[in-house]
Computed example of a mutant assay.
Amino acid sequence: MSCAVTLVMPRPVKGCKSGIYNIRVRVPADLLATVCRVEISRSLRTREPVEAKERLAAEYAATQRRWAAKRTKPEALAFKQIVSVAAKIYLQLMAAWRLNPVNL
């Protein structure tokens, strides 16, 4: 006897009061500590069921990309890269200060 694992794909959920569809996706177990939530819910900003399904696919793919990004470790920067980033920030701050020296 084989045990089949079923994966439940998210589907659009219609809001009770507004009638606007939402996406609700469970957070993967390995990201629960990072995300600090059990479920992610986002508005699909539509009341049309066909459009909600299309937007659901795009939002679900974006959610999967965000989770993949959270799983990757940050890349260490070389000293030259750190100095370069610091110089860009410094130049932006000085340009803002020249425009309005009081509010910096």
Rank of each mutant, 00 (worst) to 15 (best):
M1V: 13
M1T: 12
M1N: 10
S2K: 15
S2Y: 12
C3W: 07
V5N: 07
V8G: 03
V8Q: 10
M9N: 13
M9H: 14
M9R: 15
M9C: 10
P10G: 09
P10A: 13
P10V: 08
R11L: 03
R11T: 05
R11D: 06
G15C: 09
Y21A: 02
N22E: 08
R24I: 03
R24A: 05
V25A: 12
V27S: 01
L31M: 06
L32F: 01
L32R: 15
A33E: 10
V35A: 08
V35E: 01
R37W: 02
V38G: 07
S41E: 13
S43A: 05
S43L: 08
L44R: 10
R45T: 03
T46Y: 06
T46E: 04
P49R: 05
V50T: 11
E51G: 02
A52N: 01
K53D: 07
K53G: 01
K53A: 09
R55S: 05
A57K: 13
A58C: 04
A58T: 14
A58W: 06
E59L: 13
A61S: 10
A61E: 12
Q64T: 07
Q64R: 12
Q64M: 11
R65K: 14
R65I: 04
W67I: 04
W67R: 06
A68P: 00
T72E: 14
T72A: 13
K73L: 10
K73N: 07
L77M: 13
L77N: 04
A78T: 15
A78P: 00
F79C: 00
F79M: 04
Q81G: 01
I82A: 12
V83L: 15
S84F: 10
I89H: 12
I89K: 15
I89Q: 15
Y90R: 11
A95S: 12
A95V: 05
A96D: 13
A96G: 11
W97N: 06
L99I: 07
L99M: 11
N100P: 00
N103Y: 06
N103A: 09
